[in-house]
Structure formats: C-alpha cells, structure tokens
Amino acid sequence: MKAQYDFARAQRGAVAAIDGKTRITLLLDDAVVTAARTRAQSDTTGSQSLINDLLRQALAAPAAP
C-alpha cells in the first residue's frame, strides 16, 4: 500500500439505480424501528421491506372521514 494516494483527478463512480424506488431519509420513532425489526426477524424479511409494505397498506386503505 502506498503511503499517499493522489485523488486530484478522481471521479465519483456511478450509483446503481433501483427501478421503482427512491432513496430518502426518514426520522422514525425508536419504538417503531425496534418493532419493525422484531417483526421482520420473525417474518424472515427485511425491516425496510416490512415498513414499505405497511405504508403501502395504510395508503391503500380508504381515508378516515
């Protein structure tokens, strides 16, 4: 390994796009994240997928009057 590297002409690599998804940052309550992780482990799925599915269900439900 070199002692020093020259990044003067370095360029950022392309970011792999995920079709149909958008990267955002959300601030969620600690309890919500913990519950999602716990449920995701028992369902053998990812917590992000679980939260996405729950949000989709909530948005598909008719709005309360």
Results as ranks from 00 to 15, higher is better:
Lys2Ala: 14
Gln4Trp: 14
Gln4His: 08
Gln4Leu: 15
Gln4Phe: 10
Tyr5Asn: 10
Tyr5Thr: 15
Tyr5Glu: 13
Tyr5Arg: 13
Tyr5Gln: 08
Tyr5Asp: 13
Tyr5Leu: 13
Asp6Ala: 12
Phe7Gln: 00
Phe7Ala: 03
Phe7Lys: 00
Ala8Pro: 01
Ala8Val: 13
Ala8Leu: 07
Ala8Tyr: 08
Arg9Thr: 09
Ala10Leu: 11
Gln11Pro: 04
Gln11Cys: 12
Gln11Asn: 13
Arg12Phe: 12
Gly13Met: 08
Ala14Gly: 13
Val15Lys: 14
Val15Ala: 12
Ala16Ile: 09
Ala16Tyr: 07
Ala16Ser: 04
Ala17Lys: 09
Asp19Tyr: 05
Asp19Glu: 14
Asp19Met: 13
Gly20Met: 07
Thr22Leu: 09
Thr22Pro: 00
Ile24Met: 04
Leu26Trp: 00
Leu27Val: 00
Leu28Ile: 05
Asp29Ser: 08
Asp30Asn: 12
Ala31Asn: 08
Ala31Gly: 09
Val33Phe: 05
Val33Arg: 04
Thr34His: 10
Ala35Arg: 06
Ala35Asp: 14
Ala35Asn: 04
Ala36Tyr: 02
Ala36Ile: 03
Ala36Gly: 09
Ala36Cys: 06
Ala36Phe: 02
Arg37Asp: 10
Arg37Met: 00
Arg37Tyr: 01
Thr38Lys: 09
Thr38Ile: 13
Arg39Gly: 01
Arg39Ala: 10
Arg39Thr: 11
Arg39Met: 12
Arg39Tyr: 04
Gln41Asn: 06
Gln41Cys: 03
Gln41Pro: 00
Ser42Val: 10
Ser42Arg: 15
Ser42Thr: 09
Asp43Ala: 15
Thr44His: 15
Thr45Glu: 07
Thr45Phe: 04
Gly46Met: 07
Gly46Phe: 00
Gly46Val: 04
Ser47Tyr: 08
Ser47Val: 00
Gln48Ile: 07
Gln48Met: 02
Ser49Gly: 10
Leu50Cys: 01
Leu50Met: 08
Ile51Ala: 10
Asn52Leu: 10
Asn52Lys: 12
Asn52Pro: 02
Asp53Pro: 00
Leu54Arg: 12
Leu54Gly: 05
Leu55Met: 06
Gln57Tyr: 11
Ala58Met: 04
Leu59Gln: 01
Leu59Trp: 04
Leu59Tyr: 02
Ala60Asp: 07
Pro62Leu: 15
Pro65Tyr: 12
